[in-house]
Design a protein around this nucleic acid. Structure first.
Lengths: 188, 188
DNA sequence: TTAAATTTATACAATTCAGTATAGAAAATA
DNA sequence: TATTTTCTATACTGAATTGTATAAATTTAA
């Protein structure tokens, strides 16, 4: 609950996105956060620990934000999955969007044994599982399959938008998602 | 045409993929390549120049490989675009696949003004343009739109496969691609 | 006010980084 | 064989890297 600890987490999140994780030194982080290395290492055992916490918090915040918006938008499962891409679009096209954290982290830590890579893969899986639960509640037979397809469109759009702002990728992803959702076989 | 120059390019390509670009030092590259820094800096002005050449060569090799395979598979445009995902699958599921270079490079160089990021974005655009030409020749009305959707599925699959080998993402991407291609409006 | 906890300031170690200087060895060419 | 080009070996610079040690200053709590 320390204010300094949260400030460090926030600044690190920002710098990791704008400059890359491996290109951001702890000296830069503490300088921008207005503190010192001694304080950073009091709250985080190592830079890797800081990276892992940044990823974890970002993932939790994103999932919570998405879940709240979907639950607020509708109570009917069949409608919720239709709204999924709308909220993704809202996020991706917002001015402060700078890419999906677990995609970028896995690129910077390609070794599958790396804790950062492992956590990234875990978050990607949880995201798919979440979409699959939406699809299942909406009565889709192969909910895992549709969820995987939608996640490809969504993560592809995030990647495209991160590479070039205003790519418009999400617009076409929405059209493709609608076709896939509408043509997906239902349970009964 | 120097053998050493090509060896350096090959080793750098390999290390960039397996350890990441920013995590790979020129000392490591020359050690693995069995040469010295003096030789590396004779052929490449800087590490950034080496990165750019690695990206460029990888992009050209990939495009040439894909184009040759598609031309060999069929002479009918309508069939070629159907085969696109098959060859992507072949590459993505091959044991030495380690991710799409321009996706990973753009993550490590997030600054849009960075030459590495710019070249990555250029390659992504050229890839989409190539798919669009296939779609156009196949008689698709909105060839750019379908190409964008297919590229999202393809790049999403590459990302998924890079994160976790044997993800099976490409299988579902193929199913989604087939639906999108089959339902896409034709010119006449 | 006194005591305890937090934070800062600084200096440091040990390593790694990109890139260069110099000189000699090896290889190709004439 | 003589000459030129290529490559190696090695040492170096100067900056940046993560992480720690030590002591002083500041803030919080009693």
């Amino acid at each position: 609950m320390s204010a300094l600890r949260e400030k460090i987490l926030h600044v690190a999140t920002d710098l990791f996105h704008s400059r890359g994780i491996n290109s951001t030194g702890v000296d830069t982080i503490v300088a921008v956060a207005g503190t010192t290395k001694m304080t950073l290492y009091k709250y985080f055992r190592s830079k890797e620990d800081l990276i892992l916490e940044v990823l974890q918090k970002g993932h939790e915040d994103f999932q919570a934000w998405l879940n709240e918006n979907l639950n607020r938008s509708s109570k009917h499962p069949a409608e919720k999955i239709q709204k999924l891409l709308d909220f993704i679009e809202e996020w991706v096209t917002s001015p402060d969007f700078r890419g999906m954290a677990f995609i970028k982290a896995s690129a910077e830590f390609p070794n599958e044994e790396s804790p950062v890579h492992k956590l990234s893969a875990e978050h990607a899986k949880e995201f798919r599982t979440y979409i699959a639960s939406l699809a299942s509640e909406a009565g889709i037979s192969d909910s895992d399959g549709l969820a995987l397809q939608l996640s490809l469109l969504i993560e592809g759009s995030m990647q495209a938008e991160q590479m070039k702002r205003g790519s418009g990728a999400i617009k076409y992803a929405k059209k493709a998602a609608k076709i896939l959702i509408d043509t997906a076989p239902r349970k009964h």
